[in-house]
Simulated assay, not measured.
Amino acid sequence: MLDALTLDQMRVFVAVAEAGSFRAAAGRLSRVQSAVSHAVAGLEAQLGVTLFDRSGHRPALTPEGRALLEDARAILLKVDALRARARGLGEGVELVLSIVVDSLFPLDAVGAALKDLHQAHPSVGVRMRVAPLGAPFAALRERRCTLGITVGHDFRDPHVELEALCRLSFVAVAAAAHPLARRAGPLGAVELADHLQIVQEDPTPLSQGRDFGVLSPGTWRVDGQDAKQALILAGAGWGRLPLWAVERDLAEGRLARIAAEALGPGGETIVDAHLAHRLDEPLGPAARAFRRALLRQVAGAVNLVSR
């Protein structure tokens, strides 16, 4: 009877598939190997299919096992989310709220939301780190923060839930005296190839081997947006920056937009920002209050997307 299936059987099944052997799964689960083998055999009996081919040196997933593995993972993920939600409803206010914010997201909105949080929960401490690219996802995966604010669609994890916050405009810019700033009309790869591009690096291995929006063969790489903006303002090279960060420099003539068409019409790209948290970790009252406050702030923002 399928009603006799247990979550423990499914966890053992997934552990064996991921670890590659019954022995390795037993070590991961802190059980004896015979208990792991018994749990998998019981699951196979309940389902009426063979999940692993045991004829070789290591157990190999059968076609049926491969088909059912993702279903088991999905069920366990939903159960973990249910437990986390129930735990969050029963817990008190957090002592500390830890947040990692993508450096491309406007900090004034985060600051205003944190001010609202402090008024609602003055006893809650806050640890906030600002870092680029994969850093918020890495912190969530390693359980080093409760909430992450991410920009773009380059990183995904089935254990991390994303909630849309707003859309952000990114524009290609150069210093007003830079040769590219004096070029009229769309710029292609040939025109850009002669000029340095200032690029922000990912401090995590999540984007290893990948570049985002890199068009020039010559690059200078920096570890923060402030450094990138300073080098572009100094005329060292060109680059892509969020509109909210450069709107004043553009208005006052220190920077000029360049039409790097490979980055979008007129050199502009629109990307989504998200609030992220682990599905298996509950959001306590302070985290939920910050979420509500941040959504209010971005709903009223006027300089995030080009008008």
Rank of each mutant, 00 (worst) to 15 (best):
A41T: 10
D102I: 01
L283F: 11
D116S: 15
H57W: 14
A236E: 07
R83K: 15
L275R: 10
V298C: 10
A259Y: 04
Q229D: 06
L255T: 01
F22I: 05
P106A: 09
D223T: 11
A72N: 01
V40Q: 01
E261C: 08
H118C: 12
A81N: 04
R167M: 11
L196H: 11
A120H: 07
T269R: 15
V93L: 09
E201P: 06
R31Y: 14
P203N: 09
V302M: 14
L2I: 14
A234P: 02
D3W: 13
V190W: 10
A256D: 00
A251W: 00
S34W: 12
A113E: 04
R221D: 03
A74L: 14
V32E: 15
A174Q: 02
T204Q: 03
L233P: 11
G213W: 11
M1C: 13
G125P: 02
P217W: 03
L117F: 00
A289I: 00
A19E: 11
V49Q: 12
E261H: 07
S123D: 14
V101M: 13
D108T: 10
R66M: 08
L29M: 08
A189D: 09
G56P: 06
V222D: 01
P285K: 04
V124Q: 06
Q33F: 08
L104V: 13
V171S: 02
I258A: 00
H153L: 08
V302F: 13
E44S: 08
R288D: 08
G42M: 12
L187A: 03
P132K: 08
V126C: 05
V305I: 15
E161Q: 11
H195T: 02
L51D: 09
Q33I: 15
